[in-house]
Simulated scan of single mutants.
Amino acid sequence: MSSFHTLPDTGPIAVSRHLVHKSAASEVLLTGYERRGADSFSVTAQWPRAHCFYDVVAGRHDPLLVTETARQCIPLLSHLGYDAPADHSQIWENLTWSVEQEALLATSAPAEIRLDVRCQDVVRRGDRLAAMSMSAILWRDGTFLGSATTRFTSHSPSVIARLRGSYRSALSSALPAAGLPAPLAAERVGRDRPRDVVLSPGSAPRTFVLRVDGRHPVLFDHATDHVPGMLLVEAARQATQAVAFPDTALITGMAIEFHRYVEFDRPCLIEAEVLLAQVPTHVSTRVTAVQDGEAAFTALVTAQRGPAAGPPAHSY
Rank of each mutant, 00 (worst) to 15 (best):
G165D: 12
G165H: 15
G165T: 07
G165F: 11
S166M: 10
S166G: 00
Y167Q: 12
R168M: 11
A170M: 11
A170W: 08
A170K: 09
A174C: 14
A174R: 13
P176E: 14
G179T: 06
G179N: 07
L180N: 06
P181Y: 01
P181K: 06
A182F: 01
A182E: 15
A185Q: 10
A185W: 05
E187H: 02
V189F: 09
R191T: 03
D192G: 00
P194E: 11
R195L: 14
R195Q: 13
D196Y: 14
D196A: 07
D196P: 08
V197C: 09
L199K: 00
P201T: 09
P201W: 08
S203L: 09
A204C: 06
A204E: 13
P205I: 14
R206L: 01
R206N: 15
T207F: 01
V209G: 05
L210Q: 08
R211A: 04
H216C: 02
H216M: 12
P217D: 07
V218L: 00
V218F: 10
F220H: 06
H222S: 11
A223T: 15
A223L: 08
D225E: 09
D225F: 05
V227P: 00
P228D: 11
G229Y: 04
G229M: 08
M230G: 06
L231S: 13
L231T: 02
L232C: 06
V233R: 04
E234I: 13
E234W: 14
A235Q: 03
T240S: 11
T240K: 07
Q241D: 07
A242N: 00
A244V: 14
A244F: 05
F245A: 09
T248D: 01
A249N: 05
I251A: 03
I251D: 01
T252K: 04
G253W: 10
A255Y: 02
E257K: 10
F258S: 08
H259R: 15
H259N: 07
R260P: 11
R260Q: 08
Y261E: 15
Y261R: 14
V262D: 00
E263L: 08
F264P: 00
F264C: 00
D265K: 11
D265S: 08
R266F: 01
L269E: 13
E271S: 12
A272F: 11
L275G: 06
Q278R: 12
V279Y: 10
V279I: 03
P280F: 15
P280Q: 12
H282V: 05
S284I: 04
T285E: 00
R286W: 01
A289F: 13
V290E: 02
D292F: 03
G293I: 07
A295Y: 03
F297R: 13
